[in-house]
Nucleic acid binder design. Sequence first.
DNA 1: CTCCTTTTAGACAGGTCTGTCTAGTGCCTC
DNA 2: GAGGCACTAGACAGACCTGTCTAAAAGGAG
Lengths: 190, 190
Amino acid sequence: MTTKRSPARERLLDAADRLFYAEGVHTVGIDRIIEEAGVAKGSLFYNFSGKDELVAAYLDGRGERRRARIERHTAGLTDPVAKLLAVFDALAEAVAESGFRGCAFANAAAEASGPDSVEAVALRRYRGWFDELVLSFATEAGYADPAGVAERVRLLYDGAVANTQLDANRGAVAVARQMAELVLTTAPRN
Amino acid sequence: MTTKRSPARERLLDAADRLFYAEGVHTVGIDRIIEEAGVAKGSLFYNFSGKDELVAAYLDGRGERRRARIERHTAGLTDPVAKLLAVFDALAEAVAESGFRGCAFANAAAEASGPDSVEAVALRRYRGWFDELVLSFATEAGYADPAGVAERVRLLYDGAVANTQLDANRGAVAVARQMAELVLTTAPRN
DNA sequence: CTCCTTTTAGACAGGTCTGTCTAGTGCCTC
DNA sequence: GAGGCACTAGACAGACCTGTCTAAAAGGAG
């Protein structure tokens, strides 16, 4: 009952995270993953019910790491406006890592088979969390229209992600942060 | 040598446009397309060299229609700032149509097999065109930093697309346009 | 009417992909 | 040392998917 995890499971998740993110959930088959993980095919089906569950675990891991990263950047900050800006700092850090290819959830959902697929469900869950987080910061900051402020911040965030991914524009996050700063300092507060 | 097109080819393109956009290039097989088009499988391979060419033709059509839509919204306008804002009006029109599911190029590229795939090539072509268009308007408007203005407009545009798609947020385009207006009226000019 | 292009229906081949199954191997614990 | 857990290697089944092929029909143009 210890928290010790089997190495096969971890190696599978590592390989899935790398390959699914870099090349797409649909493009990468389980044979590629078990080969990269150095694991027998049986181990995949022993640890996961199937590819779908592996995909779900991959997205869960991505979400958890994103949550942790934002947490790390907002921890210690008391000003909610600073927290909103720190979300962009967290993004800048993610973008700076090699192999950035946009939002894992958005990419996975783009190739999903339907609105009930694990990819679509994971996307909705992630977006729900993210929307709520930004809205809670905006509310905490005492803006007259917190939902409107949150919407603008989200729009800039998504724009930065898309622009980085589509145009390989490395400065997009900084620009978005700058624009967010403008929005946050000029929006009316209670 | 007339411009008359074979109905089979057109019906194939119609079906491909609908299905590929709604469900993804990878998810939809040629059997689905020929069935929806009411056409024999042989006709697909008679009119196209294979699925890749059909995908390329689908994306070409999307690009052409987007170009025409923006052209329609900017035609008659003389003020380049108004032209930049008209790009958002064109987007608003596209978003209002039922079944909007984000950028066809970005979605296709997300499930592409590699950087040399027809999807990735089409995306780069489209982004090149779009970047150039926005930059040319910004230059025409006489901004001190046309590239910076273009970058901000693109970021807002992409953010609006992503926000509409990911959050089913119908007001995102209007918000993005508003923010663009702010950027365009406050940015320094020569 | 005749030629040539386009289209049809469907069988078929060859590939890939997920998932199952078997038989056996370490390894840890009791 | 016995039993259960995690894992291995690989064959195999079954589904799906692209693309080919055949034999024939429709249709317009000269």
